[in-house]
């Protein structure tokens, strides 16, 4: 088990910052484990014959909820556990198959403090395979503004994701 101990502060983030890239070799186990962890039983995520002969794809492929889980892991590897996701928007453009090396990269597009005093970074994440964009994701993540600030304690009108 690898634990994340980073505590990224809002003041340490600026527009144009690049997040540390993550490259991961995808196997059939990656796809099947991810689908079952998401309780997605649809056969195109575990049955090669169905994926190829019914769906017309080249192999089984990664499902959307598992991609969301990869994006969350990627973002909180950067922010540490005090980073709190507020919003994610996906656009799927292609599929991720066994044998692919998927690469997650991202840049900070915007930083702002809302009227409740919460510090936000908007990050554009790209999932690519061999340089081709498969999914992009715009995420809004809250970061501590001071040593005493913890975005996870915000509720009601103090939390505006």
């Amino acid at each position: 088990m690898t634990t994340t101990t980073t505590k990224l502060m809002f003041a340490d983030v600026k527009v144009g910052d690049a997040l540390p890239e993550l490259a991961y070799p995808v196997s059939a186990t990656t796809i099947v484990l991810g689908a079952l962890a998401a309780r997605d039983w649809r056969p195109m995520h575990h049955d090669y014959d169905f994926a190829v002969n019914r769906n017309g794809t080249k192999d089984i492929f990664m499902n959307t909820p598992n991609q969301a889980a990869w994006f969350e892991r990627f973002l909180t590897d950067w922010s540490g556990p005090t980073g709190r996701l507020g919003r994610m928007k996906f656009r799927m453009k292609g599929s991720v198959f066994p044998g692919d090396t998927m690469v997650l990269s991202a840049t900070v597009e915007q930083v702002e403090t809302d009227d409740a005093g919460c510090g936000w970074a908007t990050v554009l994440v790209r999932l690519t395979v061999d340089g081709e964009l498969m999914t992009d994701c715009t995420a809004r993540i809250a970061l501590p503004t001071t040593d005493d600030d913890n975005p996870w304690t915000r509720r009601g009108d103090q939390w505006k994701p």
């Binding site: 990656t30 484990l33 962890a37 889980a69």
Partner: peptide, 12 residues
């Protein structure tokens, strides 16, 4: 299981 599937080591 979900954290394991994406190797998410977030201590939370």
């Amino acid at each position: 299981t979900s954290c394991s599937s994406v190797e998410n080591g977030n201590p939370l």
